[in-house]
């Protein structure tokens, strides 16, 4: 029973971590708490819905396409909402408020256009075979989620640490002015970071949509609350922290639901957030003076 719960928790946590990675990357590089981030999650889930239900694509094709769609939306919104503020070097609070207003407008517009009902992915999208190993049950969709999360996280780590673009992104996270002085086009790099983050959020939306088979315009909002817990506990801007905190949150939620009460899982998650901040104000892994991407 406990082992089964842990497996379910890790599966859930993998998509939390995936989602939170993009959020923490965006903050680490662009220095903005971008509340529109949750919308990319909804956008990715809906893109996957349309691609599989209406265009008849399989999940392996729909996942990357939906992620890229969410990434492009992220670039467009960043350009529309935040780029003008960056040019004026506006204070962070202004950016936060602009994204708050922006995301509320986006959610209500999406609800008006798409309707508030919960949609389901076409049945049989991922075959429902359940594997049993030593009494532990893992269904194929769950396996898909796990593999996809690991591949995407691996791709992000590779991008940041082993590519030229990754070096530019890390330089910009450290010191945007100095990055510009090196000849790095910081505007273009910011757009690429938005794209990568949007892709991660969109992929998270597809995977969570698959896990719970429930897609609706506001799904990004409840995810955003979890995203906050993960990136703040992990340390804002810290990739490794977001990974660990994401997995931990998944496990905590599943264990709370399994052994205490499923209605309490969010209460427990936020109690942990408060407790962590009381004891370590910059998160479990965050170091206040040193930003890391």
């Amino acid at each position: 029973m406990l082992a089964q719960q842990l497996i379910n928790g890790v599966l859930l946590g993998a998509s939390y971590a995936l989602f939170a990675l993009g959020f923490t990357l965006m903050f680490g590089v662009l220095r903005v708490i971008n509340l529109t981030y949750g919308f990319y999650f909804s956008a990715g889930a809906f893109a996957a819905l349309f691609l599989t239900r209406d265009a008849g694509l399989g999940i392996w094709a729909a996942l990357p396409l939906a992620a890229v769609t969410a990434g492009l939306i992220a670039v467009a919104l960043d350009w529309l909402l935040l780029a003008p503020l960056r040019r004026k070097r506006a204070p962070e609070l202004a950016s936060l408020m602009v994204t708050l207003g922006g995301v509320l407008a986006l959610y209500s517009a999406a609800t008006a256009i798409l309707g508030p009902d919960i949609r389901r992915l076409p049945p049989g999208l991922v075959d429902g075979t359940v594997f049993e190993l030593a009494g532990l049950r893992v269904a194929t969709p769950q396996l898909f989620i796990l593999v996809a999360s690991f591949v995407l996280v691996g791709a992000l780590v590779w991008l940041l640490n082993f590519t030229r673009l990754g070096l530019a992104i890390r330089a910009m996270a450290e010191n945007p002015d100095a990055a510009g002085l090196m000849g790095i086009d910081t505007g273009r790099t910011a757009a690429l970071v938005s794209f990568v983050a949007g892709c991660l959020a969109g992929a998270g939306g597809v995977l969570i949509g698959l896990n719970f088979n429930a897609i609706h315009p506001y799904m990004g909002e409840s995810m955003m609350l979890r995203g906050f817990v993960v990136v703040i506990v992990g340390g804002l801007g810290d990739i490794r922290g977001a990974l660990i905190a994401g997995l931990a949150l998944g496990v905590v939620e599943v264990l709370t639901a399994g052994y205490v009460d499923s209605g309490l899982k969010e209460a427990v998650a936020f109690a942990i957030l408060v407790a962590v901040l009381w004891t370590r104000p910059s998160g479990l892994f965050g170091r206040p003076a040193l930003r890391r991407a």
Binding site: R170, A171, N175, L290, R291
Partner: peptide, 9 residues
Amino acid sequence: PEGRQIFAG
């Protein structure tokens, strides 16, 4: 630049 502005991390 003044204050060096190296990439500390």
